[in-house]
Deep mutational scan, measured.
Amino acid sequence: MDETGKELVLALYDYQEKSPREVTMKKGDILTLLNSTNKDSWKVEVKITVNGKTYERQGFVPAAYVKKL
């Protein structure tokens, strides 16, 4: 869990989004878990840094590609 009590997951593999509802992640990324009720895909939040500014983006990733921490 992070400092706000949200559950975290670790990306086990790289994943490139295939639709606007998904998010891209790299192996080793730590993501905030938002919903894990679907056995196939979990909703997560990723933090992306562009030019020194951090943005948050929500979307789905394959459940088999992440592990709860």
Rank of each mutant, 00 (worst) to 15 (best):
M1D: 13
M1P: 13
M1C: 15
D2A: 15
E3S: 14
E3M: 14
E3I: 12
T4Y: 13
K6Q: 10
E7I: 15
E7G: 11
E7N: 12
L8K: 11
L8C: 15
L8D: 01
V9P: 01
V9I: 07
V9M: 03
V9F: 03
V9N: 00
V9Y: 06
A11D: 02
A11Y: 03
L12H: 00
L12Y: 02
Y13D: 07
D14Y: 03
D14Q: 04
Y15W: 06
Q16G: 07
E17S: 15
E17D: 03
E17R: 14
E17H: 08
K18T: 11
K18N: 09
S19F: 08
S19R: 06
R21S: 14
R21C: 15
R21A: 13
E22R: 03
E22F: 05
T24N: 05
T24S: 15
T24H: 03
T24V: 02
M25A: 00
M25S: 01
K27P: 01
K27M: 06
K27C: 08
K27W: 04
G28A: 03
G28P: 00
G28H: 03
D29V: 05
I30G: 01
I30E: 00
I30W: 04
I30D: 00
I30H: 02
L31E: 01
L31S: 02
T32W: 11
T32A: 08
T32P: 10
T32F: 09
L33T: 01
L33N: 00
L33Y: 01
L33K: 02
L34D: 00
N35F: 05
N35E: 14
S36R: 07
T37H: 11
T37A: 11
T37Q: 11
T37R: 08
N38Q: 09
K39R: 11
K39N: 11
K39H: 10
K39L: 08
K39M: 09
K39G: 09
D40F: 14
S41N: 11
S41I: 14
W42S: 01
K43P: 01
K43H: 10
K43L: 15
K43D: 02
K43G: 03
K43N: 05
V44L: 02
V44T: 00
V44N: 00
V46P: 00
V46M: 10
K47Y: 09
I48T: 08
I48W: 12
T49N: 10
T49M: 11
T49Q: 10
V50T: 09
V50G: 04
N51W: 06
N51A: 10
N51V: 04
N51H: 09
K53V: 14
K53G: 07
K53S: 10
Y55K: 08
E56K: 15
E56G: 13
R57L: 07
R57W: 06
Q58P: 02
Q58V: 13
G59A: 03
G59K: 00
F60E: 04
F60L: 06
F60M: 09
V61Y: 02
V61T: 00
P62C: 06
P62S: 04
A63R: 08
A63Y: 03
A64P: 06
A64T: 10
Y65S: 10
Y65Q: 05
V66E: 02
V66Q: 01
K68C: 10
L69Q: 04
L69F: 09
L69W: 06
